[in-house]
Amino acid sequence: MPHISKNNKILSLKNVYKTYLQGKNHIPVLRGITLTVRAGEMVSIMGSSGSGKSTLLNIIGLLDDYDQGEYLLNGTLMGKMNESKAARLRNRHLGFVFQSFHLIGFKTALENVALPLFFQKISRKKRNQKAMEYLDRLGMAQWANHLPNELSGGQKQRVAIARAMIADPSVILADEPTGALDSTTSLEVMKVFKEINAQGITLVVITHERDIAAMTDRIVFLQDGVIQTDE
């Protein structure tokens, strides 16, 4: 992917539709989403539970497919593609942070952070070195050899953020990253995100907390699968 300059449309969705099939019922979740995110932006997505926030983020993150419309990631159309190609794109260009951390329980913090580089077939030594560097950046160096269950919620999320950053993605997608954290820790995590954003990485954060959303450049409000406001 070519160098991403500011004001480039890094994410571009046009009229995206997504319907889930549950039994015989079609549940329309996204009903014509049109959204553009420029490189370097920090956007939050808000909306009530079930409004389709996660679905939207999963489509952006190439974890799910969409039924209709167009989605361009840095100018390239993301249509139907095989899983191997999607995996490669996720690995190189996207970072994920989840509400429930999604760390692998039997791997240490360091090994968790290094995982994306493992899938790039980078040698153990190099990837551990880089993982250590990122853990250090997030103030987690001394926890490198701990297992996730030995860490607090905030620490786990820091490890997850380090993991999301390690492969130098252009976009980091976070689905309620502070949802499982207390307010102080939440603010710390958001501060980390702001720092990351300051380095030029585009951020899309789902949240249902006003004060968290207020820390971003732009708030997209979703309701019943359509964008209500975009401010």
Partner: peptide, 16 residues
Amino acid sequence: TGEIGIKRALGATPVS
């Protein structure tokens, strides 16, 4: 399953 999901999100190909 969850762990496999994580790995795939992070870029593990089905083949791997």
